[in-house]
């Protein structure tokens, strides 16, 4: 089904949302809480668009949660959208004043003056960390606690994250990089925990893998035998190379080389 974005006819599939369609088509819409691998959440409210309604009754709403429908026509750059997005940005910047991500957006969308009292927070409460941890990684180490202005994303009761596996995905998806993730030769530190890094059993090089994360990965498939996930990429490749060499030299058949 086709929809109109800024008057341009665009092909969509049923169940898609305007944000993903628009981005695919090269339109720019800002957002903090959207992630392609997660269902829309509508938390940050930056991705405002104006939906054209009958008799000029237009409505401003978020593109991430707006499902495509026959005859849908949206505009991304109306005065109404711009004005409201500016205020939402102003609110976010009052919360986290020093985030380069937000400052860039402020620049881009014409927010010149800050009228609100800075809150000195680090987190914009987009919720991606907890959603990624719970819905994707499956560690369920982070959650939204409290409510109202006293809302936090953190491990249960703000204590060191018992169920964290140290995969670092939360820190990676954080749009304002406020999650401290520290990697040393031997350890990974995050959410008040220090994880041991597994080391390659061949060369001793530290892996980007904690025992906890390894166990979690194992649970996703029956392909991985206990012997696997012990080597670094280089040692794995050398093993692969040697196997191939034996096949080439006729010491081993392709069939036995295959797992």
């Amino acid at each position: 089904m086709d929809i109109l974005i800024n008057g341009k006819k665009v092909k969509t599939r049923k169940g898609e949302h305007v944000l993903e369609v628009a981005r695919r088509e090269g339109f720019e819409i800002p957002s903090l809480c959207h992630h392609a691998a997660l269902p829309p959440d509508g938390a940050c409210r930056l991705c405002l668009v104006e939906v054209e309604g009958p008799e000029g009754k237009n409505k401003v709403t978020t593109a991430c949660t707006l499902e495509v429908a026959q005859g849908l026509s949206v505009r991304l750059d109306t005065p109404e959208v711009a004005a409201n997005r500016k205020v939402v940005l102003e609110m976010l910047l009052a919360r986290v004043s020093d985030s380069p991500t937000l400052l860039k957006l402020a620049d881009k969308y014409g927010l010149l003056e800050m009228r609100l009292v800075p809150q000195g927070e680090k987190c914009v409460l987009c919720g991606l960390c907890a959603r990624v941890c719970t819905e994707l990684v499956g560690a369920k180490a982070l959650t939204m606690e409290g409510r109202g202005t006293e809302t936090y994303f953190q491990p249960p009761f703000g204590e060191p994250a018992k169920d964290c596996v140290g995969c670092g995905s939360c820190a990676f998806v954080c749009p304002v990089t406020c999650i401290e993730y520290k990697k040393t030769d031997r350890t990974i530190e995050i959410w008040g925990r220090t994880f041991e890094r597994l080391a390659c059993t061949e060369c001793g090089e530290p892996l980007d893998l904690t025992p906890e994360h390894r166990d979690l990965i194992r649970r996703r498939t029956d392909l991985l035998t206990p012997a696997e996930m012990q080597l670094c990429g280089g040692c794995e490749r050398r093993t692969t190379m040697k196997t191939m060499q034996r096949v080439v030299e006729g010491q081993q058949t392709l069939e036995t080389a295959r797992r």
Binding site: A36, A37, F172, L224, T239
Partner: peptide, 18 residues
């Protein structure tokens, strides 16, 4: 766009091809 950089694929590939 979907990747969250958890490196699970890297850990799982038995051939070192990630």
């Amino acid at each position: 766009d979907r990747c969250i950089n958890c490196h699970a694929c890297y850990a799982a590939c038995p051939f070192g091809n990630i």
